[in-house]
Amino acid sequence: MMTWGTARKSGISPLTSPETVDEALELLAGGGPDTRAIAGATWIMRGPTRGEPVPARLVALNRIAELRGVEIGALSGRIGAMESHDRIARALPEAADLRALAVAAGASANPGIRRLATLGGNLCAVGFVAADLIPALMCLDARVEVATPEGRRNIDMTEFMAMRRAAGPFLVVAVRFGRSGFRTAHARTPARDYPVSIASLSMATDAEGRIADLRLAVGAVEADAKRWAGFEDRARGQAPDPAGMAALATEFSADFTPVSALDAPGWYRLQVLPVLVRRAFEQIRREG
């Protein structure tokens, strides 16, 4: 038997492990201002190295069965918020429309972190610029099931990115997406560890081989990943020629206000973006 640490004063434990979403929301709402939900805990636990102490109260989500599961059907898919990058990478079937997500889940950070860090954590870690899953999910046009004390909502990724900074307790339950005939690619640099620029692409072509529809999401350039609507609008109807697409990306890169951080200055993130766009189109072309 070990005893360690100082005696706790308040009745609420610094770490609670609810079994249901409702219970978790209650704990989050009642825990006071310095209460945070943890999933894989990798962002919170390394907080002290960023000068952010571990919050006073943690609500661990690992016992909530509803947050689990990777279910990929012929028409749609659902991934529970508590699934780790590693589990997602291994559970996704080999399919062109899921390739970007598989690469994002399988190449992020390092193996140890991939075994811990979850989908939900990736979605909710405000301040974590290098999140790989977010742009990949944007390309899938995924919808996020969010639970709040007021009830459940299914919102798209753009709306989610705005609401994740909002006050008030919420939990990500799962993401859902439709299966499509789109082909996808996830290009990032550097190829290992944490990226400083990400282009995630999904695309469908028409009978003439022109771009019928596409989604291009950009991560690690601005504080939050986003769909590049300006690029998408102009690319539709064009040939998916990698060099041409890179040129287009260069032309419209003023759409971004890049962040500068120690791992890369803002100009660099932007400068390599057209290259990543080119590589994403090349990957798709290569894989037919």
Binding site: L15, T42, N110, G112, I113, R115, L116
Partner: peptide, 30 residues
């Protein structure tokens, strides 16, 4: 060593998987 999930010097097996122990709050390991 790094206490941030980068170096791996703290790696242990948890439930049959190698993970950085600096990133695991003990309360999640019941």
């Amino acid at each position: 060593v790094c206490r941030a999930g980068f170096c791996g010097a703290c790696t242990v097996m948890v439930g049959g998987e190698p993970v950085p122990s600096c990133q695991r709050p003990i309360g999640m390991l019941e």
